[in-house]
Simulated assay, not measured.
Amino acid sequence: MTSINNIQGITPIPGTQSTQVSQSSKTQGFESLLNSALEKTQELKEGTKTGELSEIPALEFDIQTVSDIVTDKTDKLLTSLESYASQLHDTSVFLKDIEPILEGLNTDAASLLEETLSLGEDDQELIDIATSTAITAKTEYLKFQRGDYL
């Protein structure tokens, strides 16, 4: 078995340039690079270069409160109810085309009622408006399913 220390040098191939570097300069080059890297690592561990790092600013987040969420959902549901009412009065729109809109109204109303439960006593007026809007949407859904518009 060949010992790692006894590895023979590479013999040059005839017709190619010979760029032979002495074994001692290879060792010194590697040694100096290794020592340099170790010094930098040691300096970082000691904290000598931490002053160069600057603070990274945090992003500003737009945090919505439960009141804002309920207000947005109520506004969306009122807009959907208005669209539904205009399509219901339009004679060119068939009832089967309105059904997906009503399914969305029913889903949005259930979501709004669920969010309304998270509001505190301070938002009683918002609770009343949101609940009234959700009940109106659910009533329209039930009327449509019952066949009141046939």
Rank of each mutant, 00 (worst) to 15 (best):
Q124R: 08
A85R: 06
S32K: 07
F61S: 11
K76W: 05
E125D: 15
E43N: 13
T107L: 10
S54A: 13
S54Y: 11
A109H: 03
L33G: 12
T48A: 14
D75G: 05
Q87T: 05
I127M: 04
N106W: 01
I63T: 11
N35L: 14
E115P: 02
G29D: 04
D62H: 09
K76C: 00
D123R: 03
E103R: 12
K40E: 12
L117C: 00
A37F: 08
S86A: 06
L113A: 05
L126S: 07
D75A: 10
T116N: 09
K45D: 08
Y84R: 10
S67D: 14
G51M: 05
L38N: 13
P57W: 03
G120T: 06
L44P: 00
E99H: 12
Q28W: 00
Q42H: 04
L33Q: 12
V93F: 04
T48H: 09
L126K: 08
L77M: 11
L44K: 13
N106A: 13
E121L: 04
K76G: 03
S92P: 01
E115M: 11
S111D: 15
D97I: 05
Q28R: 09
S86N: 11
Q124M: 02
D122K: 06
L78H: 07
Y84F: 15
L88W: 07
L88Q: 01
L105T: 03
S80N: 14
T107F: 08
T79S: 14
G120K: 06
I98D: 01
T107I: 02
T79E: 12
E60I: 07
E39D: 13
L95M: 13
S118M: 10
I63L: 15
V66D: 07
V66Q: 03
T65G: 14
L59V: 04
K40D: 06
T116A: 09
T71P: 07
E121V: 12
G51D: 03
L117V: 05
